[in-house]
Design a protein around this nucleic acid. Structure first.
Lengths: 166, 166
DNA sequence: TTTTAAGTTTAGCCCAAGCTAACAAACATA
DNA sequence: TATGTTTGTTAGCTTGGGCTAAACTTAAAA
């Protein structure tokens, strides 16, 4: 297990290094950054995967194919495929048979989902929805919230907590 | 290659066979047939279509392909295809080049969506989200609500209206 | 009544995301 | 260290929903 982690970290570093070397060598750095940036077409599903990967890593330090597949009720080949896609899109670094590391970009997306999720669950709990259902529903909802809605909901929850503290 | 195919086909066939054997053996046949018939697996997208069709009919008395396509930002062939599917699934009666009539089943689904939509918009407006955004978000959310959540949200909105009437 | 324009449908394609079967790598244990 | 088990990946297929181009209907105008 430690071996696994060590390899992952090492691999990560090597990749980073070679990337930097290439970039420095030529002037592609700019174009590369740009293309990476504009290449961001997240689908809902990608967000789902990122979120569970993020949670798993937070909880256990790493995320395995099987774990991910279980949390999303999906087969492992589906997970592998999505991992490749997420690596491709720069949300994480994936080395096959080795492991996964979220990139900055990936973490941001994941954290965003995480926060929305929490907010929603908190709200739903407030109005009396049972934990489990709150979680399920939050999952369904969290993709479709306009920033304004998010803001207003946050405010609402905050003030509601003040008014009627639990 | 052929060997592979052979294996695949064989595997498939064996599975089918064992399935049938099981079914025939006991009385599952009925349940199985039933499950096939009531294969009413509404997808989110079907619900979207039904909802706008319902609204259009309510407003103008009929719903044309183009109108539907506009409201869903979708091409007309896509609409046609979905209409066929909805006819197939018994949600509406569709006569090509002629028109659409929602069936009982279709109306029920549509009204359900309609109600959820209203509820959500009402809530979002309450916490200060702008009409337009409320509508957009409601659309995204309405598919994923557990009955309990729905209930609780309804209660919440109702009591909130009493406490602080507008 | 013929011609044309608008609206609708069919044909045939694409893509995301899923699945199973088969294969490969990594890990654990004898 | 050889080997069996667990875990992960590749190949190849399926399905839903979308699109464009081309064909067809219907309705309106000439």
């Amino acid at each position: 297990m430690y071996l696994r982690m060590f390899k992952v970290i090492t691999g990560e570093w090597e990749r980073l290094w070679s990337t930097m070397a290439r970039a420095a060598d030529r002037l592609d750095a700019i174009r590369e950054a740009h293309s990476l940036q504009s290449q961001s077409k997240n689908t809902d599903r990608m967000e789902d995967y990122l979120e569970v990967i993020y949670e798993l890593i937070k909880k256990k330090g790493y995320a395995t194919t099987v774990d991910i597949s279980k949390h999303l009720s999906v087969s492992s080949p589906s997970v592998t495929k999505m991992l490749q896609k997420l690596d491709e899109s720069g949300h994480l670094n994936y080395e096959k048979y080795r492991g996964i590391v979220l990139t900055e970009k990936g973490s941001e997306v994941a954290e965003g989902m995480h926060d929305k999720h929490n907010l929603l669950v908190e709200f739903l709990r407030m109005i009396g929805v049972k934990e489990e259902i709150a979680n399920r529903d939050a999952e369904g909802i969290e993709h479709h919230l306009h920033p304004e809605t998010l803001k207003k909901l946050t405010d609402f929850v905050r003030t509601a907590k003040k008014v009627r503290p639990r």
